[in-house]
Amino acid sequence: MAMRAGDIEDMIKAGIPGCVVRIDDLRGDGEHYAAHVSASAFKGLSRVQQHQMVYRALQGKMGNELHALAVHTTVIDDA
C-alpha cells in the first residue's frame, strides 16, 4: 500500500516539532520518495541518530508501507 507525500510530511512534522520538511516524489509511484528534514533537534546527534528520529516519527512505516524513502538530514543552528 503506497503512501502520499503529504502523509509522510505530516508524520515527520508531528514527530519532530519545529522541523522543516521537503518531500521529493522520485518516481510518482507512491513508493519512492526522498525526505529532506532540517531540525534544531538534530543538533549534537550523529547522522544515524538523526535518521532514527525521522524513522521514529514515521511510526514503523519505514521498511513496511514505505519501501524506499531516502532520508537527508541537516541541523538548524538557531544560535
Binding site: 547522522r47 544515524v48 531516502a70
Partner: peptide, 8 residues
C-alpha cells in the same frame, strides 16, 4: 560499529 544505511 554501525555506520548507516544506503543514504548515510
Amino acid at each position: 560499529e554501525f555506520v548507516g544505511g544506503c543514504d548515510i
